[in-house]
Computed example of a mutant assay.
Amino acid sequence: MFNGDTLVSWRRRATAGALSFAAAGLLAAGCTPVGEPATAASGASGAPVAAPVFDGDPLPFGPDGFGRITVGMKEEEALLTGDLQAAPISTVLGRNVYSFVGGPQPDPSRMASDEELEDKVSKADDPSAAKDSGNVAQLYADSTKRTLERMHAYLEAGGASFRGGYLDNIAAPKDAVTAEGIKRGSSRADLEAAYENLGLAKGGDGHYKMPAGRDWQLIFEMDRDKVKYMSLARRL
């Protein structure tokens, strides 16, 4: 769903006007404001689910996961934990994206609109199809704008994304804290001090990333000198 440079690449793409659907990345999530949470007692089909598969104490946000959602977990296992809402808020771009219980709920009309737009962009990417250059450019612009909006909504609310039935990203919600005490609003100095000996590296546009085991990394998005978002991402 999300690799360490997705947000950076989107910003650059939007600025430069190189609006490629194939490289668009994370998600096109149809989110609504927080309301009554979906029940965690039933699966996406409405059938009852079994007890959580993770019986230990919830994890702080970090390289192993968050809450009862752990690295390497299958989608069906993650849903059994009760940490995620029962139905995805997005199914676009080959990924199922879920919010945490109490977070944004699915907006079917917006999801359908997103799918329709991405279908049009996908057809525009077909080299064998006849194209109106002005229309294609507008489709790319609309797709990138919508994707950026959904991506920021996802990072703001927190959630988890699955591709091929396996976890590939966790966006930390507002109240998440790492074992080292880093959270949204933590200072740049505190972030660097907490992870300076653990491979923390500054990337483009001021974000930080840190290795988190095989094929995973922690991402810290910054707003000036404060942590704005945290995510755990499987590297592509």
Rank of each mutant, 00 (worst) to 15 (best):
A87T: 15
S109C: 01
D83A: 15
P104K: 11
L79T: 02
I89N: 01
L79C: 06
T81A: 10
T81K: 07
M111D: 09
E76V: 13
S90K: 03
T70N: 00
M73S: 07
S122R: 11
I69W: 04
L117A: 09
K74E: 13
D64T: 09
D114N: 15
M111Q: 13
S90M: 04
V97A: 07
G102M: 02
G102R: 00
P104N: 06
P88M: 12
G72S: 05
T70I: 15
F100A: 08
L93Y: 03
E76K: 08
T70A: 13
D119Q: 09
E115Y: 02
L79G: 11
N96C: 12
M111G: 15
L117F: 13
S122Y: 07
D107N: 11
P88I: 12
P106V: 05
V71I: 14
G103N: 02
L84F: 03
M73R: 12
F100P: 00
E75V: 06
V101F: 01
K120N: 04
V121D: 05
F100Q: 03
G72Q: 12
N96E: 03
E77V: 05
E75T: 04
G72E: 10
Y98H: 13
G103F: 08
R95F: 05
A87D: 07
D64V: 03
S113L: 06
G82D: 09
L93G: 03
K74L: 11
R110M: 10
V101K: 00
R68L: 10
T70H: 11
T91I: 09
E76M: 07
